[in-house]
């Protein structure tokens, strides 16, 4: 079970003008399968960069990233696309759902790329959007839109769910609902799904199995929560 995800000395360097800037500067850690992980850090710490690398949306400048014993840094563009399609579910701060498709269609779209998708309708029922299935995104509230994005990610039945500030644009009540959905996904599938949340909201750390703190592109600390709180126990 150990080291489902493993990063070794990962660097990501951006060149801005004539200066180099290390968004990630030699990051190493590992995550076992089935954990609910929170990555914390202030703005500019490298959280989103890390998530992008894990999701195969960007390449590291150096170092290795192993997921399920595969070094994804060696993947070709197409292999990366396949990796994203089959293994990773993404949830963004600003949802990134397709505005011209209805709620149901936004979730159904994964059928085009995934071999064994889950039933879109059931998932939408699970996330509480049964009534809104035929609406367009602009007819929904922010929380509802985020739930569409979660439904879409879950429909792929991914091994890893990567969430970039999933509650960032939501009020606290809606945020809690979203977190519950994510936790539920983590526990599903016999607890084999890994959820990684990037946030600067330290409260979320209390419900995590593992908390990785980043600072200036480097690991500040890694804490394993022996007894994570349930979502309802946390005072938001």
């Amino acid at each position: 079970m150990d080291n489902f995800i493993e990063l070794k000395d990962v660097k990501k360097t951006y060149v801005v003008g004539d200066k180099e800037f290390n968004a990630l500067d030699g990051v190493s850690f590992s995550i076992p399968k089935g954990e609910f992980v929170v990555i914390l850090g202030p703005s500019g710490a490298g959280k989103s960069t890390l998530l992008n690398l894990l999701g195969g949306m960007d390449n590291a400048t150096s170092g290795t990233i192993t997921v399920d014993s595969e070094n994804i840094e060696k993947y070709s563009k197409n292999e990366l696309a396949e990796y994203r399609a089959e293994n990773v579910g993404f949830i963004f701060q600003f949802y990134n759902i397709l505005p011209t498709l209805t709620v149901l269609e936004n979730v159904d779209i994964v059928k085009d790329i995934v071999k064994r998708p889950k039933s879109s309708k059931r998932i939408l029922e699970d996330v509480g959007l049964k009534e809104h299935m035929n609406k367009f995104p602009n007819q929904l509230s922010g929380g509802e839109q985020q739930r569409v994005s979660i439904a879409r990610a879950i429909a792929k039945n991914p091994k890893i769910l990567l969430c970039d500030e999933p509650t960032g644009a939501l009020d606290s009540k809606t945020g809690v609902e979203v977190l519950k959905l994510l936790k539920k996904q983590c526990d599903a599938n016999n607890g084999e799904n890994t959820v990684i949340i990037v946030t600067h909201n330290a409260l979320i750390a209390e419900i995590a199995d593992r908390v990785i703190r980043l600072k200036n592109g480097q690991i500040d600390s890694i804490n394993v929560n022996k007894h994570p709180k349930s979502i309802d126990e946390v005072v938001w």
């Binding site: 949306m57 396949e82 990796y83 399609a85 397709l98 994964v110 790329i113 879409r152």
Partner: peptide, 10 residues
């Protein structure tokens, strides 16, 4: 970008 993130091939 979204389609790519979802895993659609180029």
């Amino acid at each position: 970008g979204t389609l790519k993130a979802l895993g659609f091939k180029d």
